[in-house]
Write a protein that binds this DNA or RNA. Structure first.
Lengths: 344, 344
DNA sequence: TCACTTATGCTCAATTTGAGAATTACAATA
DNA sequence: TATTGTAATTCTCAAATTGAGCATAAGTGA
């Protein structure tokens, strides 16, 4: 969007007039492409140069209204060009556009980022593409609580948060910070809410605890290869991409409960334990096995195929398939999370 | 965004390069401002000219990175300029950018629309502003089922949908259409899902049943003042604004269940019946009174003030207030909808 | 055959729904 | 003042759902 003479006709078919013409905005389409393999949620990243000199980024490209009929189609084009991947399930996440956090190198162009979540089954990345799958918890390590609170949480995050809280000189600010830290990270009266992924990342960002905070404040002082993961606070990503990743994971965790999204990540047939492990990997907590099975079976989300999977290490498990019909039956069919009192 | 020589440095601080420069995009900020008064959900609309010659529109304006530090702040500025209103609760809804549906009058500029939902207590519109509150169900009449299925549903919508289904010559298309109509409008095996507001509007749009469909197809043939409400299918709004309204209502209905949003719409103290009526107005269905009370009270969402509201027409009701503390206690405190099996 | 591992089935108490009856408190009216 | 109407508020009760665990089944490898 460039400055030029205002033209009332330009914007609308109707008689509405836009009072002022804006300066310079660029619209980017960004994809958080998620898969779960070997009980680990992964994200597809790209990197255009030598891996050791560049930060990983999510696949992205600018919206081109000439080529892209819709935003989502534009996204698919970019993803295909950069990773060779054809996306099935795609959903829009959020549009980011803070001036402080998404300014182009010219310091004048605002980079508007429309972020998407895509779910796929992990595949080998096609020839000729440098894209790579990486574990999501490499970037957001505090989000994985399947084996209880991770070690780095107590050793690094909690103390750093406490320091941040006490760094406030004003009493009211300190109180406000403590409350916010309690809610987002589930200390004090509040419990851990697995969906508040973005809140947690944002808090760490504001507290200056992730590499991106420093980079955005002092772009000059932080050339790309100067950005290094800080121990315990996860690896950084290019641009705003860790924020997008956090948004994606939070949305996915929430939506899992009322939409049958997991099945986008699983093969056509799967055992109930595979299903459970996939959900656990995403939500980052362990679930009660028998109750989980009861829920998905009673919810008629799956049906047995009669076939058995013998490689379980124990008794062979029956293979199930997703019953697509539920989409036509109930309003909000999700996997439901036994042991997780709504919202956890 | 204007075509100009590609400059790798323009876009990123890092070494990423955007392969192609896009053509022309304009970013608009649009606000669906919702209030509930007298048991009726309302939306704030603006209209720049004589009311009888113009369609109502939502408050909106272009993003101006010079003046607006963030998208949300830009939205607040526009809303304030156009309506005199200061917004409290604001949340981003969705970014729309279909080329077919949001092209400027020049036929070349894509109008990207970033839509927001805002919740307020209804107020008199300030002097000097032409903004007006209008009932939401004037635009989406089929969404109000508080008195059962509305009359126009059986008389107009259902037959029109059936016609649309049968208009498909190919068998598979017909089957697919019927399935979609069943899911979104809750016929056949499917139940009415109050959250699928957008799906329903989109289906009516695609079926050519709302005024906007024709307008977008034949802009020339449908000058603004030629767009007239079609009986039973609700009044049209300018641009894509009815779609934004549908998105807003759907989001609000969903979020009500797990976040205490209703209280943004209520005065500081209120009776439990007022609370219930407000929820009902938004969700568009009636709730079981005793169970509703049980839920909000057991959920500790509210606390009694001891004061009584005598003007109930019967026994005076106790006045309650929202317990802000719940935000610090439980992960997902919503009003819960008794009688509504999750997702309804 | 035994030890081990995982799948699957089943039980049971505690809670949470869904629905409605019963009781209370005020206003208006006979 | 007694009666009637309208809501508010309290209770009850059966049905369904959840949370937790025990028991049994069916494979594998030693």
């Amino acid at each position: 969007m460039h400055r030029r003479p205002t033209n009332g006709k330009l914007f609308l078919r109707g008689p509405y007039r836009l009072p002022v013409m804006p300066r310079a905005v660029t619209v980017g389409l960004h994809a958080a492409i998620v898969a779960v393999t070997e009980e680990e949620p992964r994200i597809l990243t790209v990197s255009e140069g030598a891996a050791d000199r560049r930060l990983a980024a999510l696949p992205f490209g600018p919206l081109d209204p000439d080529r892209h009929r819709t935003l989502e189609l534009g996204l698919r084009v970019w993803v295909h060009e950069q990773t060779g991947m054809e996306l099935a399930y795609v959903e829009q996440l959020y549009t980011f556009g803070d001036r402080d956090r998404a300014l182009a190198a010219d310091g004048r162009t605002l980079l508007l980022a429309v972020a998407y979540l895509a779910l796929v089954r992990e595949r080998q990345v096609a020839e000729g593409h440098t894209a790579a799958w990486q574990g999501i918890y490499r970037f957001l390590p505090w989000e994985d609580r399947r084996d209880g609170e991770p070690e780095m949480f107590g050793s690094h995050i909690r103390p750093a948060l406490a320091k941040w809280v006490n760094a406030a000189t004003e009493n009211s600010v300190r109180h406000e910070r403590r409350g916010r830290a309690d809610i987002t990270f589930g200390s004090g009266a509040a419990q851990w809410d697995s969906e508040r992924v973005l809140d947690r990342y944002e808090l760490l960002y504001e507290a200056g605890l992730v590499a991106e905070s420093a980079r955005d404040k002092e772009p000059a002082a932080h050339a790309v290869d100067a950005i290094r993961p800080e121990v315990g606070f996860g690896a950084p990503l290019a641009l705003d991409h860790r924020r997008i990743l956090a948004t994606a994971l939070g949305r996915l965790r929430g939506k899992l409960k009322y939409r049958p999204l997991v099945f986008e990540l699983l093969p056509g047939t799967f055992t109930l334990l595979q299903l459970q492990r996939t959900v656990e990997a995403l939500v980052g907590v362990r679930l009660h096995k028998q109750n989980f099975r009861r829920l998905v079976e009673r919810g008629s989300l799956v049906e047995g195929t009669g076939e058995l999977e013998p490689d379980t290490g124990g008794r062979p498990a029956e293979l199930f398939r997703f019953r697509r019909e539920v989409l036509h039956e109930r309003p909000a069919p999700g996997v439901g999370l036994p042991g997780l009192p709504a919202g956890q």
